[in-house]
Write a protein that binds this DNA or RNA. Structure first.
Lengths: 154, 154
DNA sequence: ATAAATGCGTCAGCCATGTTGACGTTTCTA
DNA sequence: TAGAAACGTCAACATGGCTGACGCATTTAT
């Protein structure tokens, strides 16, 4: 027998919690970013560069899922602010490699920490075994391609 | 003793899962919306009008957290498309009350259903007891004010 | 009764972040 | 050595936010 879908009621319960939850989560960082004259797009770039240590431009593009034109503008602002550096890939001079400066790392960390307390208390509310469930839920929500872009929990 | 913060590693694990998970979740509806010439802003308005049955303009503004100018543009497009109707509050003629037309309800439901399969399978991956943990986590993530705007899970 | 406050709706202009399309340059590869 | 690949950039445009200002109908307070 085919899967009988979950109720609209149960679907809405998750949909609205995701909406409000995600908005609050991003809001924490947005306030810090605004004080530096940056936006959420800058945060995402900083995050994934830091996360990888250094990252080729094409990989950052694939991760963010935006066009190179959209990324170029963001990167230029980040490089002008001395938060990001671009150098060439020694094995293929066409490719660019992005890294954070010390200032970039410091900012990225302060953005992460702006979100930390909220995440921590939410995980506590989920309970000890609930944390694994939350990870599993969010991972299952993602597009399969993106699953390869995240770290394991363990 | 004060709370020792969770590790950056654990914080990132949640942050990136939220980013990719939320993007996939909204993407399902975005594809349907694009085929109708509408955007995510229209979806949010449709969602919260439907959810309430009918809703005063000021309450929708508070829920969405945008300015009346931003909402007015969205509402006008929705009313032009005969998806939303505005009438006056009989007890206070200054206030507007918003409801969905039959076509609006049909579209809202099709958007919800576009997201249903992903949500359902993600909840299954979280497991039976995990579902409660997911609800609790997302609720705890939200701003306190917004918690009053959602339905209970039971 | 009337003055002030409230709740809109709208116009105008701006910003942030995305999109396409086109073009040029450097660098690798066949 | 020709062509493909990987950018970087310019231009024009869409979406969905914002602020400020104005006008109007309606309610509330004096």
């Amino acid at each position: 027998m085919a899967d009988a879908f979950m109720s609209d009621f149960a679907t809405r319960a998750i949909a609205e919690r995701l909406f409000f939850g995600y908005r609050a989560f991003t809001g924490d960082a947005d306030r810090v970013l605004a004080s530096r004259g940056l936006g959420r797009a800058h945060h995402r770039a900083l995050y994934f560069i830091e996360r990888a240590g250094s990252i080729p431009v094409h990989e950052l593009l694939a991760t963010l899922g935006i066009t190179k034109q959209a990324l170029t503008r963001v990167l230029r602002e980040l490089m002008d602010a001395r938060l990001v550096e671009r150098r060439r890939d020694p094995t293929d001079g066409r490719r660019g490699i992005l890294t954070l400066t010390d200032a970039g790392r410091a900012l990225e960390l302060s953005l992460l920490h702006a979100q930390r307390a909220r995440i921590e208390s939410a995980l506590q509310r989920a309970g000890p075994s609930g944390s694994a469930a939350v990870h599993a839920f969010l991972e299952a929500l993602m597009e399969p391609d993106d699953r390869e872009r995240i770290g394991t929990t363990l």
